[in-house]
C-alpha cells in the first residue's frame, strides 16, 4: 500500500516537474500574469452574420451559432474556478480594441475586405490609422489581395483574440474575439478560403458531425448533402482560453518560443498529450476535441481563478499534478506522532 502510494506520488511529481500542465499569458515587460479582476465577466456578440453555413443558421427551434458560442464560454465556467462568463446579449459593435467602453465582444467578420465591393474601394484599405473592419464588418487584409483569388498569408487568419490589460497589475480590462467567417459568396472553398472561413455548427452530445469536409460554400448543394468544415465551437473554446488568460502549452517552433516545450515532444506519464488539449496551438477542419477542456486546461483555469478557500493553486504550471500529489501525501497513513 505504502509503496503503491509512493509510486503514485512519484508519478505525480514526475508529471508536475518537466511538463507544464498549462502556461499563463504574461504582461509585456512587467511579466505579470494576466487575469480578470472580478469573477463575473459578461460578453456580448455581434450576431449580424447573415451568411452562415446551414448548420449555423437560426431556425424556429433554436440558434446553433449562439448555442456554440455559449457552450464555448460555458466550458470555462467550472466548479473549481471562481469565474462566471455570462452571455450579455447582442450589440451592434463592429470595432475591437479600446472603444471607450470595456465591452467584451465576439464579432463575426464577413469575409476579407479586399473581396468586399465597398471596402476595397475605400481609402481605409490603405490607411493604417483606420480599420476597415470597424466600418464594413470584413477582416482587413492587404490591398494587393484585391482582385486575387488566393492570398495565402492574409487569408490564413481564422480568428483573432485581443486582450486589453493593465501591465502594472496584469488585470484584463477588455477582450474581443474576431471570427473570420464567410461573406456569403457561393463557390468553391479554396485553401486559403477566398470568401472567409466556413464555420459549421454541429451540436455535441449524441449528434455526430458529418465526416465529409465541405468543399463548396453554401452547402448542401452539388451532391454534398451534409458536410462539416471549421467547427465554430472548437475554434471559440480555444479563443476563450486566451480570453481568460491562458497561453499555448507548447510551441510549434522552439526557436521563436524557447520557453515552451515542443508540441511534437512527448509528455510524462499522466499528462495529457499536447495535441489533445484545448489550448494546443494546432487545429484542423472537422476537429471538435477542443470543445472540451482537458485536465491540463482545467488546471490552468482553476489556478488563475481559484475558488475562495479552495486549493489555492496559484502556481504557473503543473498545479493539477501538484494538487494530486498533495492529496496522495495526505492519504498516506501516519505511523508516528
Amino acid at each position: 500500500m505504502r509503496s503503491a502510494l509512493a509510486a503514485l506520488a512519484a508519478a505525480a511529481l514526475a508529471a508536475a516537474t518537466p511538463a507544464r500542465a498549462f502556461v499563463r499569458t504574461t504582461a509585456e515587460r512587467t511579466g505579470k500574469p494576466l487575469a480578470w479582476r472580478f469573477p463575473v465577466v459578461p460578453w456580448h456578440v455581434n450576431r449580424d452574420w447573415p451568411a452562415t453555413s446551414p448548420s449555423c443558421r437560426p431556425t424556429p427551434a433554436g440558434d446553433p451559432t449562439l448555442d456554440a458560442l455559449r457552450a464555448s464560454f460555458a466550458q470555462w465556467e467550472q466548479p473549481c474556478a471562481n469565474l462566471e462568463l455570462p452571455y450579455a446579449g447582442e450589440v451592434p459593435e463592429l470595432h475591437t480594441g479600446d472603444g471607450g467602453s470595456y465591452e467584451n465582444v465576439v464579432v463575426f467578420r464577413r469575409g476579407w475586405c479586399s473581396q468586399h465591393d465597398q471596402a476595397k474601394l475605400d481609402p481605409c484599405m490603405s490607411d493604417p490609422d483606420v480599420d476597415c473592419g470597424g466600418i464594413y464588418g470584413c477582416f482587413e487584409d492587404s490591398t494587393d489581395c484585391i482582385g486575387q483569388t488566393s492570398c495565402p498569408l492574409d487569408w490564413g487568419i481564422v480568428a483573432l483574440t485581443s486582450v486589453l490589460y493593465d501591465p502594472s497589475s496584469g488585470r484584463i480590462l477588455d477582450a474581443d474575439i474576431e471570427l473570420n467567417g464567410w461573406d456569403g459568396v457561393a463557390g468553391n472553398i479554396g485553401s486559403p478560403p477566398q470568401h472567409g472561413w466556413y464555420f459549421t455548427c454541429y451540436p455535441g452530445a449524441g449528434t455526430a458531425q458529418p465526416q465529409a469536409t465541405c468543399n463548396r460554400y453554401g452547402e448542401p448543394t452539388a451532391g454534398q448533402p451534409d458536410c462539416a468544415s471549421m467547427d465554430l465551437q472548437n475554434t471559440v473554446t480555444h479563443e476563450v482560453g486566451h480570453f481568460v488568460g491562458l497561453r499555448h502549452p507548447c510551441t510549434t517552433d522552439r526557436n521563436r518560443e524557447p520557453d515552451l516545450p515542443s508540441c511534437g515532444a512527448g509528455v510524462p506519464a499522466g499528462a495529457v498529450p499536447f495535441a489533445d488539449r484545448t489550448m494546443s496551438p494546432t487545429t484542423d477542419v472537422l476537429e471538435t476535441k477542443k470543445r472540451h477542456l482537458s485536465p491540463d486546461d482545467l488546471a490552468g483555469l482553476c489556478a488563475i481563478y481559484p475558488e475562495p478557500g479552495g486549493c489555492g493553486c496559484g502556481g504557473g504550471q503543473g498545479a493539477g499534478a501538484v494538487s494530486l500529489l498533495a492529496v496522495l501525501l495526505a492519504l498516506r497513513p501516519r505511523r508516528r506522532r
Binding site: A27, V158, A159, T161, D166, L173, H242, T283
Partner: peptide, 16 residues
C-alpha cells in the same frame, strides 16, 4: 506604461 492598458492577441493561421 505602468498605468496604461495593453492588448494582447492570439490568432489562428493557415500553414503557408
Amino acid at each position: 506604461l505602468l498605468a496604461a492598458a495593453a492588448p494582447a492577441a492570439a490568432a489562428t493561421f493557415l500553414a503557408t
